[in-house]
């Protein structure tokens, strides 16, 4: 996957979470994914806490992008 593709995917995923296009993701946005992704509310909470590196309760594109890179470079997508 090229760098541009990663950036594009990051934006796509971010927008899937930030459906109101606020420019950030909050816990409520994350919980909305409960019905769409096979993750429990608790797991989504964990994901949010893991991605929210400064712990301010808002996920920015930068934080989201860092988490995605970590995932990509830590584990290969099959």
């Amino acid at each position: 996957m090229g760098q541009n593709t990663i950036l594009e995917k990051t934006r796509e995923f971010f927008q899937m979470c930030d459906i109101e296009n606020k420019g950030f993701i909050n816990r409520r946005d994350m919980q909305r994914l409960n019905g769409e992704l096979p993750l429990s509310a608790e797991e989504l909470e964990n994901v949010f806490d893991t991605l929210d590196s400064d712990g301010n309760g808002f996920l920015t594109l930068d934080e989201f992008s860092s988490g995605f890179s970590e995932f990509l470079f830590g584990r290969k997508i099959s």
Partner: peptide, 29 residues
């Protein structure tokens, strides 16, 4: 570092989350 600790503990959950997003996007089951 609490973030590192949380990151390690939730690595599987994070992978699950992004894999789910990828599956959703591509329409794979």
């Amino acid at each position: 570092d609490p973030n590192m600790k949380a990151g390690a503990a939730n690595e599987g959950v994070l992978a699950n989350f992004f894999n789910s997003l990828l599956s959703k996007k591509t329409g794979a089951p």
